[in-house]
């Protein structure tokens, strides 16, 4: 292929580097380092519970970013999947005596079904109308959670036993639980990473850039978007269900609309449409919430201020801006 050869010659240095950065091997090496860091983080003085909360929210934000960053769909109802999965997992473990992995699987499955239903209903709307419909549907789930007997209304489901993974790994041991959450996180992350870098993800990106053109090339764009929405809801459910195991509870906070807002914040702050952005966004928000917990409602004011500063000064988010700087300076 002589054309390809000429092509490398005409490429600018910047393009070569950005190509190299997107190289699969570089990604894999990065993941190896990342996994290692997560594995040793509790031994570096970080609290395991804080880390597990971070991993759950990061997974939630990854799932959300699949939709916002790679399809261009802003859902304002993802709390419904996160919260509902957390209720189902808490209930099945506490009342039905499921093992933790089965409880998490049940929560994830319910989120998947709910995602398919909501996605099919909302997907024909665009922009703000899509966001409003997802919000309305999520509010219905919120009221269901408030009224249904098994969710215990304002009290939520408390005191969920951590149980034994596969019946023999004791999750009441914090480090066992930590590695379980880590495994769930890695699984969820790889599903999303793979979906983004798959033939399916390629067309999703094309839909984000020019939906009419994708239609004109013979694709059923509606089905593709429903597929992406369902996948996003499923992984969101996986995160919510796991969080219920970590905190041994499921409450209205997880299904409240402000949770849908929080994940938008995490995604934008970290950098929407970047692979790792949501992790950084979730890290910033969760850390702030933890360290400022004593300040009460000031946390909301502070995160709000950060959000405004982010939108005004670095719209691409933390990871988005860093990538851009790397490209410019090379």
């Amino acid at each position: 292929m002589t054309a390809a050869k000429e092509n490398t010659q005409t490429m600018s240095t910047g393009q070569k580097i950005s190509n190299a950065l997107s190289d699969r091997r570089v990604h894999l090496a990065g993941f190896g380092v990342g996994i290692l860091l997560i594995a040793i983080a509790p031994y570096l003085g970080l609290y395991p519970i804080y880390l597990m909360k971070l991993l759950c929210f990061a997974l939630f934000a990854f799932a959300f970013n699949l939709l916002l960053g790679f399809v261009g769909l802003l859902s304002f109802g993802h709390a419904a999947f996160f919260g509902m999965a957390s209720y189902i997992s808490a209930h099945t473990i506490k009342v039905w005596g499921f093992t933790p992995e089965l409880g998490v699987a049940a929560g994830t499955l319910v989120a998947c079904v709910l995602g398919l239903a909501f996605g099919s209903l909302a997907i024909r709307q665009r922009g703000i109308y899509f966001a409003m419909i997802t919000l309305a549907l999520a509010q219905m789930v919120y009221f269901f959670a408030l009224q249904a007997p098994f969710t215990h209304g304002e009290d939520g489901i408390q005191g969920v036993p951590r149980g034994e993974l596969f019946g023999f790994i004791d999750l009441s041991q914090t480090m066992n639980l930590y590695y379980f959450v880590m495994a769930v996180f890695i699984l969820g992350f790889f599903i999303i990473y793979r979906a983004i870098h798959s033939p399916f993800g390629q067309i999703l990106k094309a839909v984000r850039e020019n939906e009419s053109r994708v239609t004109s090339l013979g694709y059923n764009v509606t089905a593709l978007k429903v597929g992406a929405f369902t996948l996003s809801a499923t992984i969101t459910g996986l995160a919510g269900a796991t969080k219920a195991v970590v905190f041994q509870s499921a409450t209205l906070t997880d299904v409240h609309w402000s949770m849908s807002g929080e994940v938008v914040l995490m995604t934008l702050l970290g950098g929407m449409g970047t692979v790792l952005g949501p992790l950084f966004g979730a890290g910033i928000i969760v850390t702030l919430q933890d360290y400022l917990a004593g300040m009460g409602s000031w946390v909301t004011v502070i995160t709000g201020t950060i959000f405004v500063v982010c939108v005004l000064t670095f719209r691409r988010g933390v990871v988005g801006e860093l990538t851009r700087m790397l490209r410019i300076h090379s």
Partner: peptide, 21 residues
């Protein structure tokens, strides 16, 4: 490739690496 991919039936395969393209 977005156009070439359309008739192949690969599109819904979100678990395949994009290397297949």
């Amino acid at each position: 490739r977005v156009a070439l991919q359309q008739p192949t039936g690969l599109t819904h395969k979100f678990w395949k690496a994009e290397k297949v393209l």
